[in-house]
């Protein structure tokens, strides 16, 4: 189903990005977890009270009492959303559209390898990248919490939270990959692959500000990933995550079918 040679090449190309994003995530996650301090919380809450719109826009809200709530507020509103998303945008485009745009896709097609195999290999490379990034950040969070605040966090809740995040990131990856498979021109594949997730995130920021802008939350898929509710074990949050997962599966299938059927001018 996948071509190992091609997969190895793509993973090799992903490594650089993975290392960079891994390093950024390491920096943020470790610093933010170390910042957890009930006293400090009051200071941050003070900031949030002074400029609630600005803090809320980046997903930081008042009243994240326990450690997990603190992490949700300061990690799952921005850092862990944005960096894997940027990874998906860059790699998603590089895996298919860049080859078609440059014409080097011809080298991949002019071989006894089915198009389905090619697209599945590229998909596997993207999924592996997202998986590695999230698995790493989950492990990192667990280790940091265990070292700095042993026993303050239920690991199962952290896993549920990150599973939800994984579904969201898979969905974003699906959008990028579909755009990459559907357009020959990198202009359009980046336009849609990066534009849609970025726009959705901006809408999400707007919705977070609250007030009348809160209605904007109905126009962004980020709403489907509700970390606070997910940790609290609410059914609606689980349903949202499920929708993201099913959506992701559909997006990848659509991408594969489109790539298999379409004309490639290479």
């Amino acid at each position: 189903m996948i071509n190992k040679t091609l997969y190895a090449r793509e993973m090799k190309k992903s490594i650089k990005l993975l290392v960079i994003f891994g390093a950024i995530i390491t920096l943020y996650v470790s610093i933010i977890i170390s910042m957890y301090d009930p006293e400090m919380m009051k200071v941050l809450d003070g900031f949030a009270q002074m400029m609630p719109e600005l803090m809320a826009a980046v997903g930081m809200t008042i009243g994240s009492a326990d450690l997990l709530g603190f992490m949700v507020s300061y990690l799952y509103g921005f850092i862990l959303l944005i960096f894997p998303m940027v990874f998906s945008i860059l790699r998603g485009n590089g895996l298919v559209a860049a080859y078609v745009d440059k014409g080097s896709m011809a080298s991949l097609l002019a071989a006894p390898v089915k198009r389905r195999t090619i697209v599945c290999t590229q998909m596997a490379a993207l999924l592996s990248g997202i998986g590695i990034l999230l698995a790493y950040s989950t492990g990192l969070e667990a280790v940091c919490v265990q070292i700095m605040f042993p026993g303050e966090l239920e690991l199962s809740k952290l896993l549920v939270l990150n599973l939800g995040l994984l579904c969201l990131q898979l969905f974003i990856g699906g959008i990028c990959f579909l755009a990459s498979c559907a357009f020959s021109d990198t202009k359009y594949s980046i336009g849609f692959g990066a534009g849609i997730p970025a726009l959705m995130y901006v809408v999400q920021m707007l919705a977070n500000v609250g007030g009348s802008a809160e209605k904007a939350k109905y126009f962004t898929f980020f709403t489907l990933f509700a970390p606070d509710e997910l940790v609290a074990g609410e059914n609606s949050a689980a349903a949202g995550v499920l929708v993201l997962f099913v959506g992701a599966v559909l997006l990848y299938c659509a991408a594969a079918v489109i790539f298999e059927k379409r004309d490639l001018f290479v």
């Binding site: 190309k13 014409g103 080298s107 002019a110 006894p112």
Partner: peptide, 20 residues
């Protein structure tokens, strides 16, 4: 096409290989 490619050699008109 995948069966044909087994016995086919192709030189593209515009050569673009993997630059890296």
């Amino acid at each position: 096409r995948d069966k044909i490619q087994k016995i086919l050699g192709y030189i593209p008109g515009e050569i673009s290989f993997f630059d890296d």
